[in-house]
Design a protein around this nucleic acid. Structure first.
Lengths: 119, 119
DNA sequence: CGCTATCATCGTTAGATGGCGATGATAATG
DNA sequence: CATTATCATCGCCATCTAACGATGATAGCG
């Protein structure tokens, strides 16, 4: 393995870490789950989460940086929606399974057309 | 949805967040990758990572709490190995793909018998 | 029984982070 | 233009965390 390859690997590991970091927060996971019902305005998310608007905006900015959500401006509102990504859906589905090993599993209503929820 | 279900969902979200948090660090990802070559003593990991022994031990404790690695004591050494988990392997494989979208992809030598690295 | 090697844990420190209110920017409305 | 609604950004604070050195615990060795 050359040195350049090692540098690239570090870069890749950092990217992966950043991705996982974006997912390492219950609030952001809840946002991603809620966005399964379609795009939502920031205010709607704020009411749904019961958090301050600035807090929600910060979480959305975090998700936006990793390109997990997309924004669409309409008038004064910013409509957020999940970015299409089979990889992310798979990651979340597997994480649900791992987290459901113990305790009553709460079904993340993800669209996974292949495997019919075998727990 | 009842209130109890909501509480369970919060619990599940916290578990998922904890899992992702364990993966949200380049050093821990590097440890998991290195453990693909088999079990390793703490000192070996310390030399491989170039970090202090206490630091490595802390990372291993973090991975152990989420049950991503297993320990096997042998003499004075603690042999660490990755816990068997198809879900985790899938998560890491998908994360590699997502992180490889831009830049030269560095192939995480994961054992994924199904899909032959379609980037 | 000393001595060394290996690892876990503790205490500390510098930096990151989630939360909030306040402020600024922008667009619809009158 | 003035006002209001919506959202992003800033500053602040409490908390967390990754890194380290130092210390303690345990197992092999002479």
């Amino acid at each position: 393995m050359s040195v350049d390859d090692a540098v690239d690997q570090v870069t890749q590991l950092k990217k992966m870490a950043a991705l996982f970091h974006a997912l390492a927060d219950p609030t952001r996971l809840l946002i991603l789950e809620h966005l399964l019902t379609g795009e939502h305005k920031v205010k709607e998310l704020t009411e749904h989460l019961g958090l301050a608007q600035s807090t929600v905006s910060a979480h959305l900015a975090c998700l936006r940086e990793i390109d997990l959500v997309s924004v669409r401006t309409q008038g004064r509102a910013s409509l957020y929606s999940r970015t299409e990504s089979p990889q992310l859906s798979l990651i979340l589905a597997q994480a649900v399974e791992l987290a459901s090993v113990t305790g009553s599993e709460h079904h993340w209503h993800e669209e996974h057309p292949n495997q019919p929820e075998e727990v």
